[in-house]
Amino acid sequence: MNSIPRKMIQRTEHCFRKRALVTSSFGSCSFPRNSLYQQHPTCAFSSSSSVSSRSSNGDDNTRSTLNNSVSSEEVSKFSAMASTWWKVDHNPLISMNPIRMSFILQQIANQHKINIEHTSSAYKPLSNLKALDAGCGGGLLSESLARLGANVTAVDPSEEVAKAARIHSMKQNDTKDIDYKGGMSVEELANMEEYRHSFDIVCVLEVIEHATDPKSLMQGATSLLKQPTDTHPGGLLFVSTINRTAKSYAVAIVGGEYLTQKLPIGTHDWRQFLSPKEVNQLVQNFGMEEVDKKGMILKPPFWDLKWYLDSNDFDVNWIGSYMHK
């Protein structure tokens, strides 16, 4: 916490309080204002890489080491959530993780022609692949990739978050070698010669909607991917986010934050959501194209939080894979 100015934290609390008043107009869903983010510390923490905020004017100079697509207000918000990252009830991303991973595995199996059948006594389908988790948060995705055999590097703009993630992953043999880089943005990593064009897999999951400059984030992410050669098909980029539709406002903002309170209020700004088309246009600037995309949907009964991949419904959550043209 000491790396984040007290003013920032106060500001975040103030922001939450303002929203709590809004919430109380929903009647039954009002709750104690002061304990807001202790009680509902959830959401997109595999993700806080390039975080932004509506009120980030002038905040950036407080963390001059970060690239300008990251705002420190959001960094402090996600840092405060660290204690409950690994609790299913508090983190909806845990329930989303299995289908994100199954999409990633399927895409890699198609591209690298590897067998992802679970037949032997060690299940390591991603062995020999280098993966980057951009905006690793508590390390949920990083650990999953590492367990499946990948050599994982993880970056997060928050030092604290990365430290907590490192402590968590040290407990297990499969995940203790993850290279966590706290206080670093994707763009900064992309500026380091040894990482440029070195990854088989780059994951930017539930991150882009928090970035002030999605284009700069995508530029950084794509320049970290291996380039295609005669023997290597090139790296795969994975992006997942929320579409900007009326339905996503109803589901992700009204439903997720206000009604069910599965996410803390203020987690998402609807205006920063991106459609599959917009992301595709973004990455096309850097010589990439879409390979496949899937909607991620919840089916009733919704309280089970059981996610499914869907080929047609991209209205709310979706995930896409991209490779060099």
Partner: peptide, 9 residues
């Protein structure tokens, strides 16, 4: 198969 394992909570 999604790499989460059953050793973590």
């Amino acid at each position: 198969e999604s790499g989460m394992g059953i050793d973590t909570n």
